[in-house]
Design a protein around this nucleic acid. Structure first.
Lengths: 205, 205
DNA sequence: TGGAGGGGTGAGCAAGCGCTTAGAGTCCGG
DNA sequence: CCGGACTCTAAGCGCTTGCTCACCCCTCCA
C-alpha cells in the first residue's frame, strides 16, 4: 500500500470530546508559543473550559505534551515504516517516504512543530521512550538509502550523514511552512523528493 | 577573501567582563532549556553573580536574548554575504557558503540553537529587526543559486524552494550536532556542500 | 581626605504559575 | 425517586518568576 496514504490528522479518535478539545487546544498553543510559554489557563481557555478541567482528563500539563508527542511520533514511524516496506526499488521508496513525510509536516505543521521542537520539555522517562521512536524513524530512512547503495542505484559517500540530511529537510518543513504561502504540501513534497533523489545520486548511473 | 574564514566565536568583544559572562551564561542556558524555561536566577548563577546583577548590564531578560540573536544573525549574514560576493563560479560560491554556514552551526551549535529556535521569544520590534536580517541571509543564498541557473551551471526547477531547502539543511545542524559525535564540523560542512551541489544539479551538464 | 560613580548584593514585591479541593450539576441505573 | 459516578467550576495554595530598591564596597579624582 502506498506510503502516501497518510493517516488522518486530527485527534478524532480521542474521547471523550472534552479530552480531545484539550489536546487540540494544547497542540495549537504549544506550536505557537512553545511548551514553557504556554500556561494551563491558556490551554483550558482555548478549549472553552476552566484550568481545573484539564486535570480531570490529564494528570499533568506534561502528560498532555507527552500524549501529543507520542501520537505524532507513532504516526511518523508508521508512515516511514510503510515506505521502507513498500514495493518498488529504493528510489521509489525513498521518494515516497520523503513525499509523505514532507507533506505530513506541511499539512500538520502545528503538530509537527510540537513533535519536533518541544522534546526538551518532556519528562526523562517520556523523553527516553520518544527517542526510541525517533531512532526507528531514522533507521527506516537509513535502510532505504543503504538498500539503494547496495543495489547500485545510489551514489552516497556517507549513508548516516546523508540520512540525517534527509531528515533535516523533512523535519524543518514544520518550522517554516505557511499555509498562506505559495506552495501546497504536495508541491513541497514533490520538490523535496526530487531534491533528495539528487542528493543520493539516483539516476546518475 | 575566503568565506570559510569564519568569524571567531565567543563574545570576547563584549565589555565589561561581567556583561560578557552574563551573555555566555545566557547562551548556554537558552540553548539547553529554551528561553522561557531559563530563569534570570539560572543565568546569574552560571555567571557567578546574583540575579540583580543582570540588571546592571541589561535592561531585561529579553534584551539579553535580543543581543545574542542580533549578533548571531549579523555573523551569519556576514558569512553568507562574503560567500555570495566571493570570486569564482556559482558552484564554488555555493559550496563555500554551505561549508562555512554548516561549520558555524556545528562549531557554535549552542549559539546556533538560540539564534535559530528562540525567535518566538523576542519582543515584536526586536523580532521584526531580526526577520530583516534573516531575509537578507536567505537572499544571499538565493542570489548564488539564481546566478548558477542563469549561467547554466545549475539545474534548479524552483529557486526559492531550493533556497529554503539549503537553509533547512544548514540551520538544522544546530539542532542535532553533537561535539562528542563522530563527525567534525569540517566533515559535516564538506558533506553538506557536496549534497547541496547535487541538489542544484551542479556538474550534471 | 571626601565625594561621586560604578558595580554589586540581599531582600523583597507584585504577578502569575501548576495543581488541588470543595461543591454543584447532570445523567443513569436500580 | 435516589444515590453514585462523571464532569466541571470557583476559589485558592504554595511556590516561582522578572524585576526593583536600599544599601554597601571599591576605585578614582579634585
Amino acid at each position: 500500500m502506498s506510503a502516501e496514504a497518510a493517516t488522518g490528522e486530527a485527534w478524532e479518535d480521542i474521547t471523550p470530546d472534552a479530552a480531545r478539545r484539550l489536546v487540540v487546544a494544547a497542540v495549537q498553543a504549544f506550536a505557537e508559543r512553545g511548551y514553557h510559554a504556554t500556561t494551563t489557563r491558556d490551554i483550558a481557555g482555548r478549549a472553552g473550559m476552566s484550568p481545573a478541567a484539564l486535570y480531570i482528563h490529564y494528570k499533568t500539563k506534561e502528560e498532555l505534551l507527552y500524549q501529543i508527542s507520542r501520537v505524532g511520533h507513532l504516526r511518523s514511524l508508521a508512515m516511514l515504516g510503510e515506505a521502507r516496506d513498500g514495493e518498488g526499488g529504493a528510489a521509489d521508496r525513498l521518494a515516497s517516504a520523503v513525499r509523505a513525510f514532507v507533506r505530513w509536516h506541511a499539512e500538520h505543521h502545528t503538530t509537527g512543530r510540537v513533535v519536533q521542537y518541544e522534546l526538551g520539555a518532556l519528562a526523562p522517562d517520556h523523553y527516553a521512550e520518544i527517542v526510541v521512536l525517533r531512532r526507528q524513524s531514522e533507521d527506516a530512512i537509513r535502510t532505504i538509502i543503504a538498500d539503494g547503495v547496495a543495489a547500485g542505484d545510489f551514489d552516497v559517500p556517507e549513508v548516516s550523514g546523508t540520512t540525517l540530511a534527509v531528515l533535516s529537510l523533512c523535519i524543518d518543513v514544520a518550522r517554516w511552512f505557511n499555509p498562506a504561502g505559495r506552495r501546497t504540501p504536495d508541491e513541497v513534497g514533490a520538490l523535496y523528493a526530487d531534491l533528495v533523489l539528487r542528493m543520493v545520486g539516483a539516476g546518475r548511473r
